[in-house]
Amino acid sequence: MEKRHRILLIIALVLLPVLAYFHLTIGQIQLSSADFYNAFFNYSDSETGQLLVREFRLPRLIMAIVAGSSLAIAGMLMQTLFKNPLAGPYILGINSGASIAVALGTLSGISMFSSNIGLIGLALIGALVFGFIVLGFSLFVRNSLSLLLVGIMIGSFTSAITSLLQTISSADSLKVFTIWGMGSLQQVELSQIGIITVFFILGIFFSFFLIKPLNALVLGENASLLLGVPVKNLRIIIIVITALLAGLVTAFCGPIAFVGLAIPNLCKMLFKTQQHLVLLLGNILLGALFLISCDILVQGLEPFILVPINVITSIVGAPFVIFIILKRLA
């Protein structure tokens, strides 16, 4: 690893606990350091401060890290797989897959689907199915712009179906789904953090085994094949890991746009490399930093206005993506 890369990664790593501290302490209710200490080591659920830390602030912070990192890695994987800097789990419709599966589950009113395992299972299956649909299209649609359009069409189609489902569902399940659909990091409960972390670590763990084939894939599929990379299997593994990471986030936070698209591009601009070890570490850290920052903003605005996290990521992310497109044209 080059020295410059190492320095940038260390800076990001140092920033992480700093931003995490701000994230934990910025809420409307001031908490003492004793509250934080006791919440971990001497917990009593009758103390409001301690309760707040354990049940709300900490799960929300962990979710910001998990969601930011997961979406950024998923975006990086898609961009290298499709050799397209504008690819991402959101734009290619993988999030839509998770969304519609969750919508069907929640709106059906069947209680099994609203349990942790039920929700995550649905989101993963939905993400996986839509991931393979996009992969299938990519084998025929060689033009990268057309593939993006196909992804956007899949997204529109799915949201139309989802709207249709909403009109025929009960008021209660509609409310649950609407709140979920706005995207939020604070719906997660402490009891869910365990399973989320397990899936997250699995996703990251398997991503490290993709570093070598991803480095080769930069040369194109045929060139990778001639270097002994099993391209067919690789495509499937990439889609499965992307679905795992993007599905996980969508299940628990709802749709969060632009992280998967903007952060991998930011990493390429910052690190100026095609070495996927550096890019993977960069995306893990910058994804987390970005979403923590966005959520600090959400919390800072809370006394005045309730802004969904998806709105912030879009307001920051969309202009950045336009900037990337213009920069490529120049």
């Binding site: 070598k212 480095n215 080769a216 930069v218 040369l219 270097l227 100026k272 490399t273 095609q274």
Partner: peptide, 16 residues
């Protein structure tokens, strides 16, 4: 390829 140095490009020949 964008951001790919000549040395790193040649190094990909060592993939096998």
């Amino acid at each position: 390829i964008e951001h790919l140095k000549v040395y790193d490009f040649i190094a990909l020949g060592r993939t096998p």
